[in-house]
Amino acid sequence: MKIRVKCFAWAKEVTGEDEIDLEVPEGATVADLRDSLAERFPVFSGRMESIAVSVNQEFAGEGTPVDAGDELALIPPISGGCA
């Protein structure tokens, strides 16, 4: 199935897109999303650990299911506020 993933900050810059479409198997999880992402954009492979994935606006672990209807996003390390 095809899923749509929002890209922010560094992730938006390296993909060149606000949103990307990825192909994942039925019953896929966040881990499958990452595999598909790394295949399509190898630049993510080296720093996947620092990129969080959110599902429906909550940070999501590797086993979290993802569905075509979910709101998915790539969350690079954040830097809000002001030191």
Binding site: F8, A9, W10, E13, V30, E49, S50, I51, A52, V53, S54, F59, A60, G61, E62, A73, I75, P76, P77, I78, S79, G80, G81
Partner: peptide, 23 residues
């Protein structure tokens, strides 16, 4: 809170990556 900061300065520009979230 998912907010990101990009600095522009003498050395060009860079994303400041403060805090990676363990999903």
């Amino acid at each position: 809170v998912p907010i990101w900061k990009k600095e522009y300065g003498e050395e060009g520009m860079a994303w400041v990556e403060g805090c990676a979230v363990d999903a």
